[in-house]
Amino acid sequence: MLKNEKTQEKEMKKEMMLKVSDIDPKFKYEISKLPGAENVLLCFQCGTCTADCPIARFDDFYRPRKLVRLVQLGLKDKLLSNDVIWLCSTCFTCIDHCPQDVGIADIVRALRNLTTREGKMPVVYKEIASNILKTGYAYVIPGLRLKKREEEGLPSLPKASVENLAKLCDITGLSKMLEKVRT
């Protein structure tokens, strides 16, 4: 038990140790160019976002304040390889409450987009993307459901123009990204 605690402590210390070489000093500027993340440099670490974040209440590691600090420090690799960035539920409470108008949810989205560019994303997003490209909808709506709509007197669903969606997927770079994904 005691031993366990000691190794845990050691690991935590290791986790907290930063090497200057881990730092990408230009990362914060890269992020600040992305839509919604323009004010990332203005965060003064007050902690309002973390205090009001519903996810931070139930997860031991998800801390929006800390994520912004890591961006400012330039710990790009640490951020992009960290699964916690996928936990934001986009409730936008932080956006409404931040005294510096930092746009945390947008910064988190920017981090996710960068991670995806490197070929990584939770498998659920790959499924959703492939559903949209196949059917226009985020879920594959079963034939039975479509029949039931008729019985319920609901108008039939329009067919999505799949060719056009494929074109948009190519031109926005999503197709390339999806090819890269290993999940």
């Binding site: 839509p35 949209i132 770079g173 999503l174 990204m177």
Partner: peptide, 10 residues
């Protein structure tokens, strides 16, 4: 909305 996390432009 569901694709914003992976590709904002899409």
């Amino acid at each position: 909305f569901p694709l914003d996390p992976i590709n904002h432009d899409m």
